[in-house]
Write a protein that binds this DNA or RNA. Structure first.
Length: 103
DNA sequence: ATAATGACTTTCA
DNA sequence: TTGAAAGCCATTA
């Protein structure tokens, strides 16, 4: 496993409960600015057994980039359990649940 | 080594 | 907010 992945995972774990973060943000926090894609790639390799709250990571639109279901549970359900609200379009209000400050 | 792929982002409209 | 186009980079074949 590369250090990159570890950094990404660490960044994801930093995300507080009831909050969501974008790939770009995670990339920055992980120390890999501009590597948003790789963040997604790294998370793709993850599973529910990794212990990483990957469900808190969404794309810039606030939508779940992955298929509706993955790892056996709905990402949406998990987030709702944390207090994150979804709209009819299946998105989270980034301007309300965005982790940290913007940019 | 090159080519293709992908859980993305940013900018312009 | 959404949509299209360009950019970026690691992983896989």
């Amino acid at each position: 496993m590369s250090d990159r992945y570890t950094r990404i995972y660490a960044a994801v774990r930093k995300v507080p409960r009831g909050r969501v973060a974008t790939y770009g943000q995670i990339a920055i926090v992980a120390g890999l600015p501009g590597h948003a894609r790789q963040v997604g790639y790294a998370l793709h390799a993850l599973t529910v057994s990794t212990g990483v709250p990957w469900q808190r990571i969404v794309n810039a639109k606030g939508m779940i980039s992955l298929q509706p279901m993955r790892g056996g549970v709905n990402q949406r359900m998990l987030l709702e359990s944390e207090g994150v609200k979804f709209d009819a379009a299946g998105r989270v209000s980034l301007m309300k649940f965005r982790w940290k400050k913007r940019r």
